[in-house]
Design a binder for these strands. Structure first.
Lengths: 146, 146
DNA sequence: ACCAAAATGACAATACGTTGTCAACTGGGA
DNA sequence: TCCCAGTTGACAACGTATTGTCATTTTGGT
């Protein structure tokens, strides 16, 4: 019978490994569109409605500085545009440009195809159950975490 | 009914979130010992037997350059020592120093306690099942990945 | 209305990972 | 024996994320 400590280690290892695999898969999907996974995530966050840099950061769960650097770069590349924000003079609302939307649209089919292969290979019911368990685990980690 | 594309996105999000949570938890555990999670991983890899930097990298699944940079730092900090490698003149065997082992030992109790809380809160049987499913998912991603 | 606290963008330093390149070393086949 | 391919460490450039600090802007309580 494995110790709790061992189980914790195995779980962490499994999550780290999957994180690496999904990141690598994302890079392969995003690269043909000339963007990175991080750019993809930032553009994806403002597809439905404009957000400020800080707002994107909150939604993504990373620091606002990290988002800000990528947003600045995306604006320089012409994939993101800043519009004046009535609610905050220093914090413009960010939205994708036409080029930005095109980049995301170029990725979408590959992402959908990959997801479909993944769900069908793993089993749809099991896939949905796994997501549920991961979300429950996330809550548990927050609850007991050091 | 969610589309496969949505499910893929939810799954990726769940993994990324847990990765971030576990990384943060690891940092909290390792910090009192004066080391980082990356240092912990490298030291942990040579606890049982000395390895070369490239060997550690293979075991950890990251590039040898990343390990090399951390190993050089650990040697400078006196936590890791290099012994001549009969099998390769340029690639010394790396092993923890006494200080290195002490650092790991200072982390172990906290890690064990955190793991125990996690396993007991989540449910031991469900925890073990989740690890199994994650490993199966890892294999599936490798199989269908882009 | 005013003032302190919170939010925000800019900037710097740092950690960690990647790819690419180069020279030195190792090992195996002609 | 010799040479070539693979391994390895060093170094550089880059992408991403963090923390910390600063000045500016917004907001909420008195």
């Amino acid at each position: 019978m494995p110790s709790e400590s061992q189980l914790g280690g195995e779980f962490t290892l499994a999550i780290f490994k999957l994180h690496g695999q999904l990141l690598a898969a994302g890079e392969k999907l995003a690269e043909p569109a000339g963007i990175t996974v991080a750019w993809w995530q930032v553009l994806g966050a403002v597809l439905r409605q404009p957000l400020t840099a800080s707002g994107i950061a909150r939604q993504m769960g990373i620091t606002r500085q990290a988002v800000q650097r990528i947003a600045n770069r995306l604006i320089a590349e012409g994939l993101l545009q800043a519009s004046p924000n009535p609610a905050h003079k220093r914090s413009p609302l960010l939205a994708p440009t036409t080029d930005g939307r095109l980049a995301i649209e170029r990725i979408a089919p590959g992402q959908a195809a990959f997801s479909t292969r993944l769900v069908e290979s793993f089993g749809r019911a099991e896939f949905e159950a796994l997501i549920s368990e991961l979300e429950r685990m996330s809550i548990t980690v927050d609850a007991v975490g050091p």
